[in-house]
Amino acid sequence: MTAKVEPDPKPSFPFSMVESMMPMYPLIALMGWMLVVISFVIGFTTLSSAVTEWFSEVKADREASTALNDAQTTIHVIETWLPNLKFLGLGLGLLAINMALGTIAKKLRHMGKVISYHIEESQRQKMPEIPNRVRLFQGSAMMGIMILMATLIIGLVLAFGTVTDYYESDTQAGHNLDTDTSDLGTIAAIPHWLGPLRMMGMAFLFAGITIALTVIIGTLKYQEDMLKNL
């Protein structure tokens, strides 16, 4: 027997977009996995070979060689943006978990409605409103993934801007004599703030999972109480 249950009202933007994306969690997980695979492939091929080329020469030679400039530039450019791609891949995996948990919570609510439909009207309890925590975990997950996307964009801009310009412009030996080292300062500071920013993105995604689990646990408890009171 199919029960006719009233659908929940459509949430406002951007939560409507999140809810419409929720069933796509396997695809999002696959995308995340693929990004990490791409990171591995780039690390294994391009980055690894550039590092091999760079360190195959003795220190004095590699630092003075213009022929090795490309290898050095490649190393620094890739090391600036690739970790951000890798973490975006991991973040998409966590986003998929968030969305899977959100889908479970939604299905539990639907099940509760179906059961409630079959309960005698005199004993039927009013369905509770969707808890605010649902919007909180959706918001937290979106915030996390947006931070990770922002770090990738920042990484790409820095890698193909300042980092490329700096390392392409001269050999390491030449740079050692630079009087204006402002670009080196920018480059040296990048990993110290971009890395922790990536982890902040991950923290928001973990927070989303934590809150989504509280929604599921809360729903299970509420439904148990509802059944007990019949």
Binding site: H175, T181, G185, T186, H192, W193, L197, M200
Partner: peptide
């Protein structure tokens, strides 16, 4: 803990690295 890591990285280590490498020649 993650937020502390971000604050220390972005507001202590990052600016220090920027000033150390960006305002002084190798010599």
């Amino acid at each position: 803990l993650i937020m502390i890591g971000f604050i220390v990285g972005a507001f202590v280590v990052g600016p220090t690295a920027n000033s150390y490498f960006g305002e002084n020649t190798k010599q």
